[in-house]
Simulated assay, not measured.
Amino acid sequence: MLLPDGYSDVPPGKIAAVVTHLQMTTRPSLLPERAGPWTLRRVADPDVGWFRDLFDRVGSEWLWFSRVRMSDDELRGTIHSPLVEIYALGCEGSDEGLIELDFRKPNECEIAFFGVTAGLVDSGAGRWLMNRALQAAWSHPIDRLWLHTCTFDHPKALAFYQRAGFVPFRRQIEIADDPRLDGAVPRAKARHIPIIG
Protein backbone atom coordinates (compact mmCIF):
# COMPACT_ATOMS: atom_id res chain seq x y z
CA MET A 1 0.00 0.00 0.00
CA LEU A 2 1.33 3.42 -0.92
CA LEU A 3 0.84 6.22 1.57
CA PRO A 4 -0.68 9.42 0.22
CA ASP A 5 1.32 12.64 0.10
CA GLY A 6 1.08 14.65 3.27
CA TYR A 7 0.85 13.58 6.90
CA SER A 8 -0.45 10.19 7.99
CA ASP A 9 -1.43 9.61 11.62
CA VAL A 10 0.42 7.00 13.67
CA PRO A 11 -1.87 5.48 16.31
CA PRO A 12 -0.98 5.89 20.00
CA GLY A 13 1.23 3.07 21.21
CA LYS A 14 2.87 2.69 17.81
CA ILE A 15 6.21 3.83 16.42
CA ALA A 16 6.98 4.70 12.81
CA ALA A 17 10.32 4.77 11.00
CA VAL A 18 11.54 5.48 7.50
CA VAL A 19 13.51 2.40 6.44
CA THR A 20 16.18 2.62 3.75
CA HIS A 21 17.39 -0.56 2.05
CA LEU A 22 20.91 -0.52 0.62
CA GLN A 23 22.88 -3.00 -1.46
CA MET A 24 26.12 -3.69 -3.28
CA THR A 25 26.56 -6.12 -6.15
CA THR A 26 30.35 -6.23 -6.37
CA ARG A 27 32.97 -6.65 -3.69
CA PRO A 28 34.10 -3.17 -2.56
CA SER A 29 37.49 -1.86 -1.64
CA LEU A 30 37.83 -1.68 2.12
CA LEU A 31 38.06 1.76 3.69
CA PRO A 32 41.05 2.83 5.79
CA GLU A 33 40.57 1.92 9.42
CA ARG A 34 41.82 3.05 12.80
CA ALA A 35 43.83 0.58 14.89
CA GLY A 36 42.30 -0.43 18.18
CA PRO A 37 42.20 -3.18 20.79
CA TRP A 38 39.60 -5.09 18.75
CA THR A 39 39.31 -8.72 17.85
CA LEU A 40 36.75 -10.65 15.85
CA ARG A 41 35.52 -14.16 16.47
CA ARG A 42 32.86 -16.22 14.80
CA VAL A 43 30.45 -17.63 17.36
CA ALA A 44 29.20 -21.04 16.26
CA ASP A 45 25.81 -22.05 17.72
CA PRO A 46 25.69 -19.06 20.08
CA ASP A 47 24.03 -19.40 23.44
CA VAL A 48 20.64 -17.69 23.36
CA GLY A 49 21.30 -15.80 26.61
CA TRP A 50 24.66 -14.54 25.32
CA PHE A 51 23.06 -13.40 22.05
CA ARG A 52 20.19 -11.64 23.80
CA ASP A 53 22.60 -9.79 26.10
CA LEU A 54 24.83 -8.55 23.26
CA PHE A 55 21.83 -7.74 21.04
CA ASP A 56 20.38 -5.64 23.86
CA ARG A 57 23.62 -3.83 24.65
CA VAL A 58 24.22 -3.00 20.98
CA GLY A 59 20.68 -2.33 19.83
CA SER A 60 18.25 -1.33 22.55
CA GLU A 61 19.11 2.38 22.22
CA TRP A 62 18.07 2.12 18.55
CA LEU A 63 14.92 0.12 19.33
CA TRP A 64 16.12 -3.21 18.00
CA PHE A 65 13.25 -5.40 19.10
CA SER A 66 12.61 -8.13 16.53
CA ARG A 67 14.89 -10.69 18.20
CA VAL A 68 13.64 -9.68 21.66
CA ARG A 69 10.10 -10.69 20.77
CA MET A 70 11.18 -14.13 19.49
CA SER A 71 10.80 -17.15 21.74
CA ASP A 72 14.06 -18.87 22.70
CA ASP A 73 13.26 -21.72 20.30
CA GLU A 74 12.53 -19.35 17.42
CA LEU A 75 15.68 -17.34 18.09
CA ARG A 76 17.78 -20.48 18.40
CA GLY A 77 16.40 -21.71 15.06
CA THR A 78 17.62 -18.50 13.40
CA ILE A 79 21.03 -18.02 14.97
CA HIS A 80 21.90 -21.74 14.82
CA SER A 81 21.00 -22.05 11.13
CA PRO A 82 23.99 -23.31 9.13
CA LEU A 83 23.29 -20.44 6.71
CA VAL A 84 23.54 -17.73 9.39
CA GLU A 85 26.91 -16.54 10.70
CA ILE A 86 27.28 -14.67 13.99
CA TYR A 87 30.40 -12.67 14.80
CA ALA A 88 31.38 -10.79 17.95
CA LEU A 89 33.75 -7.86 18.21
CA GLY A 90 35.89 -8.27 21.29
CA CYS A 91 37.36 -5.33 23.17
CA GLU A 92 39.51 -5.79 26.25
CA GLY A 93 37.96 -9.12 27.18
CA SER A 94 34.31 -8.24 26.52
CA ASP A 95 32.03 -8.71 23.51
CA GLU A 96 31.10 -5.20 22.36
CA GLY A 97 29.95 -5.56 18.74
CA LEU A 98 27.71 -7.82 16.67
CA ILE A 99 27.47 -8.97 13.06
CA GLU A 100 24.71 -11.31 11.87
CA LEU A 101 25.13 -12.48 8.25
CA ASP A 102 22.16 -14.29 6.68
CA PHE A 103 22.88 -16.45 3.62
CA ARG A 104 19.50 -18.21 3.55
CA LYS A 105 18.58 -16.76 0.14
CA PRO A 106 20.70 -18.25 -2.68
CA ASN A 107 23.51 -16.07 -4.05
CA GLU A 108 22.98 -13.22 -1.60
CA CYS A 109 23.73 -12.16 1.94
CA GLU A 110 21.85 -9.86 4.26
CA ILE A 111 23.66 -8.10 7.05
CA ALA A 112 20.70 -8.67 9.35
CA PHE A 113 22.26 -6.91 12.35
CA PHE A 114 25.39 -4.83 12.70
CA GLY A 115 26.57 -2.54 15.47
CA VAL A 116 28.79 -1.75 18.41
CA THR A 117 27.95 -0.86 21.99
CA ALA A 118 27.58 2.78 23.02
CA GLY A 119 31.09 3.07 24.41
CA LEU A 120 32.60 2.23 21.01
CA VAL A 121 30.49 4.57 18.87
CA ASP A 122 32.82 7.04 17.10
CA SER A 123 35.91 5.10 18.25
CA GLY A 124 36.71 3.61 14.84
CA ALA A 125 35.46 0.18 15.93
CA GLY A 126 32.43 0.42 13.63
CA ARG A 127 34.58 0.96 10.53
CA TRP A 128 36.90 -1.86 11.63
CA LEU A 129 33.93 -4.16 12.17
CA MET A 130 32.32 -3.25 8.83
CA ASN A 131 35.52 -4.11 6.98
CA ARG A 132 35.40 -7.56 8.63
CA ALA A 133 31.70 -7.95 7.79
CA LEU A 134 32.40 -7.19 4.13
CA GLN A 135 35.29 -9.64 4.06
CA ALA A 136 33.21 -12.40 5.67
CA ALA A 137 30.20 -11.85 3.41
CA TRP A 138 32.16 -11.66 0.15
CA SER A 139 34.20 -14.76 1.05
CA HIS A 140 31.04 -16.61 -0.07
CA PRO A 141 29.93 -16.91 -3.71
CA ILE A 142 27.30 -14.15 -3.58
CA ASP A 143 26.03 -11.69 -6.19
CA ARG A 144 24.47 -9.26 -3.75
CA LEU A 145 25.03 -7.99 -0.21
CA TRP A 146 22.35 -5.87 1.39
CA LEU A 147 21.12 -4.38 4.63
CA HIS A 148 18.67 -1.82 5.89
CA THR A 149 18.75 1.04 8.34
CA CYS A 150 16.03 3.31 9.65
CA THR A 151 15.41 6.63 11.30
CA PHE A 152 15.54 4.95 14.74
CA ASP A 153 19.23 4.13 14.17
CA HIS A 154 22.22 6.31 14.94
CA PRO A 155 21.94 9.49 12.83
CA LYS A 156 25.27 8.71 11.13
CA ALA A 157 24.30 5.14 10.16
CA LEU A 158 23.01 5.82 6.64
CA ALA A 159 26.08 7.83 5.62
CA PHE A 160 28.32 5.20 7.25
CA TYR A 161 26.83 2.44 5.10
CA GLN A 162 27.08 4.53 1.94
CA ARG A 163 30.77 5.26 2.61
CA ALA A 164 31.28 1.49 2.92
CA GLY A 165 29.95 1.05 -0.64
CA PHE A 166 26.24 0.38 -0.16
CA VAL A 167 23.77 2.10 -2.50
CA PRO A 168 20.16 2.88 -1.47
CA PHE A 169 17.55 1.11 -3.59
CA ARG A 170 14.27 1.09 -1.64
CA ARG A 171 12.50 3.16 1.00
CA GLN A 172 9.63 2.04 3.23
CA ILE A 173 7.67 3.15 6.27
CA GLU A 174 7.59 0.66 9.15
CA ILE A 175 4.91 0.91 11.83
CA ALA A 176 5.07 -1.33 14.89
CA ASP A 177 4.02 -1.53 18.52
CA ASP A 178 6.37 0.57 20.64
CA PRO A 179 8.55 -2.07 22.36
CA ARG A 180 9.02 0.18 25.40
CA LEU A 181 5.32 -0.06 26.24
CA ASP A 182 5.28 -3.86 26.57
CA GLY A 183 8.69 -4.16 28.25
CA ALA A 184 10.54 -5.65 25.28
CA VAL A 185 12.91 -2.65 25.48
CA PRO A 186 13.43 -0.62 28.69
CA ARG A 187 11.25 2.46 28.80
CA ALA A 188 14.25 4.77 29.30
CA LYS A 189 15.86 3.74 25.99
CA ALA A 190 15.73 5.64 22.69
CA ARG A 191 14.90 9.04 24.11
CA HIS A 192 15.26 10.45 20.59
CA ILE A 193 11.94 8.72 19.82
CA PRO A 194 9.10 10.02 22.00
CA ILE A 195 6.63 7.59 23.57
CA ILE A 196 3.07 8.44 22.61
CA GLY A 197 0.85 5.89 24.17
Score class of each variant (00 low, 15 high):
Ile79Gln: 04
Ile142Pro: 02
Gly90Glu: 11
Asp53Gly: 05
His140Cys: 08
Arg41Gly: 15
Pro11Tyr: 07
Thr39Ser: 11
Glu100Val: 11
Val19Ser: 07
Ala112His: 09
Arg76Trp: 01
Val116Trp: 13
Asp73Asn: 08
Pro141Lys: 14
Asp143Val: 09
Asn131Glu: 09
Asp47Glu: 11
Lys189Ile: 00
Met1His: 13
Leu145His: 07
Ile79Glu: 05
Trp146Gly: 06
Ser81Met: 00
Arg76Gly: 04
Pro194Ile: 08
Ala125Lys: 10
Leu89Glu: 06
Thr39Phe: 00
Thr25His: 05
Phe169Asp: 09
Phe152Val: 09
Glu110Met: 09
Ile99Trp: 08
Leu101Val: 03
Ile195Glu: 10
Asp73Lys: 13
Gly93Thr: 11
Phe113His: 12
Asp45Gly: 08
Thr117Pro: 08
Gln172Thr: 15
Gln23Thr: 08
Val43Ala: 02
Leu134Ile: 15
Leu54Gly: 12
Arg191Asn: 02
Asp177Cys: 12
Phe169His: 14
Leu63Met: 04
Gln172His: 06
Gly165Lys: 11
Pro28Arg: 07
Thr151Tyr: 04
Val84Asn: 02
Arg144Phe: 03
Asn107Thr: 06
His140Gly: 07
Arg171Val: 14
Thr25Glu: 14
Ser81Asn: 15
Ile195Met: 14
Pro168Lys: 02
Gly165Ala: 11
Gly59Phe: 07
Ser81Leu: 00
Ile175Leu: 14
Glu100Asp: 08
Arg163Glu: 13
Thr117Ala: 00
Arg69Met: 05
Ala118Glu: 13
Ser29Met: 12
Gln135Asn: 06
Leu98Pro: 08
Pro32Ser: 08
Val84Arg: 00
Ser8Met: 05
Pro12Trp: 03
Arg127Thr: 01
Arg170Ile: 04
Asp153Asn: 11
Ser29Cys: 09
Pro186Met: 01
Gly36Gln: 12
Arg191Leu: 12
Phe103Asp: 00
Glu108Arg: 04
Pro194Ala: 09
Leu31Ile: 12
Tyr161Lys: 04
Val43Asn: 00
Tyr161Pro: 00
Leu98Asp: 02
Gly183Tyr: 12
Pro141Cys: 08
